[in-house]
Design a protein around this nucleic acid. Structure first.
Lengths: 253, 253
DNA sequence: CGACCTGTTGACACCTTTCAACTCTTGTGG
DNA sequence: CCACAAGAGTTGAAAGGTGTCAACAGGTCG
């Protein structure tokens, strides 16, 4: 099946990857510590394995779901990176999040039972499909799952609120510094280097996320590099002085 | 029981208002259309009445809960207005929401099972205490409640994301216009006038919410008034040209 | 009635955007 | 394999929007 890259892709068209005996289940997935199964008992974990019956590959640039699509499932990133962006009626658009492996996308749709954002892949990505029907019936007799799901939703709210503070109370330099540290810590939690990594998003996407223009982002990266805080070449960045970067936003007043 | 006004108030110190035969239950509450019971059947509604065993009065300026408090309950505003504000480690603070009757506060704490913001009353306020234990056990055999609760959490996320777009992509004038319209619509849904109302929050609080300084808010109100869009005297505002106000932010480009 | 808090208004500084030119990288087709 | 085009990123100069600082007016509450 061939799907053209620049074309919007409906759910049904995206290649579904069947779950085989060989492919990892929740109980053996390396993302278990970070994902839905976090903190579950061995016993509960076994039951989780029935939850994900399907995975979806999303190629770089393709769309997993679109704003307004009916909400049938939420998705756990298995590998790759996604971005979500919302567009208001008046055409204003903004990236609301970047999602790394182990993180759940689609929770914002639960309010109206339809997706509240577009989700697109920044690189070739695979997600586990968590159907809401299955989730609801399973969590009925798996309290730890219900609890965990609420936790994740709560975390999403907390995350958004932190972003609100960043956008409302921080200057450009502070926002970008906080962004770098946040990305670094999340990558580090996934076993990648905390000090050297590839940003999968463009300057424009970073800007959209942080409420800045791409030129501002570019200038700030240059300034950070000049100050010896980072080394940067295109999207490859090395955090040379993490403490120094943190100081950029931690000491306010 | 006397609680000094400028003092932080622990949960236990706030006056609890016992539920009597006389006082309204969920099944008869006028906020039912907007609150947790929204859309429930008569039958389910009857069972909701057992959920709220307690109400709390919060006087103007007092605090309902603080960041870091363990999360034992969420709260439905019965009358009055609350604000929530978060403070980051580095001392940055921002108002993350204003809550009107029928709206639920405390959902942001579900991530870590402790409150992620402070909640304080902008005027004398009463809230219904929804204990999480009771909520979980009741929603186990009341699917409509579980569903409704997820819906409300989803709405909280959607709301935060709209704020992200406002803070990230709108200019001061547009943000304030959107704020006025949003407040107007929410008040209108509660039976108040959509065009004339009292804002319970100060210029500084509006500014904090919108990521602006109080002087900017004040100037903009003056400009809106000059342009004939509103009439304003202190916190009493009259929206003269609602369509005109909407144009301030709806036609971008 | 006076103190204090809230809100208004002005002048100026500064941060970020805007517009523009240019470079570098990447991908495509001859 | 190179040439070329298109996209992504960098950098400069100037404009504009908010913030800052300050003085003052108005409202509220003891």
């Amino acid at each position: 099946m061939i799907v053209s890259r620049d074309q919007s892709c409906r759910f049904q068209l995206l290649p579904s990857v069947p779950i085989t005996e060989m492919s990892p289940r929740c109980s053996t997935c390396t993302m278990g510590q970070l994902c839905l199964p976090m903190g579950m008992s061995q016993q509960d974990l076994a039951r989780m394995d029935t939850l994900v019956q399907e995975r979806i590959r999303v190629q770089k640039g393709e769309t997993l779901y679109r704003m307004g699509d009916p909400l049938a499932a939420v998705y756990a990133v298995r590998f790759g990176t996604l971005k979500t962006h919302v567009t208001t009626e008046d055409g204003r658009s903004q990236i609301t999040g970047f999602y790394l492996p182990g993180e759940i996308v689609g929770l914002d749709g639960l309010g109206e039972m339809q997706h509240a954002s577009d989700a697109a892949a920044l690189e070739d990505t695979e997600v586990c499909v968590v159907r809401l029907n299955d989730l609801q019936s399973l969590s009925a007799d798996l309290p730890s799952l219900q609890h965990q799901f609420l936790r994740l939703m709560g975390k999403e709210i907390t995350r958004d609120q932190l972003m609100l503070v960043m956008l409302g109370a921080m200057r450009a330099e502070e926002r970008l510094a906080a962004f770098l540290i946040n990305l670094s810590e999340r990558l580090s939690a996934r076993g990648y280097s905390a000090s050297e990594f590839v940003m999968r998003m463009s300057r424009e996407e970073i800007g959209s996320y942080l409420g800045l223009k791409l030129e501002t982002v570019s200038r700030l990266f240059s300034r950070f590099a000049e100050a010896g805080l980072i080394q940067i070449r295109q999207r490859h960045v090395k955090l040379v002085d993490i403490a120094g970067i943190k100081e950029l936003y931690s000491r306010s007043c």
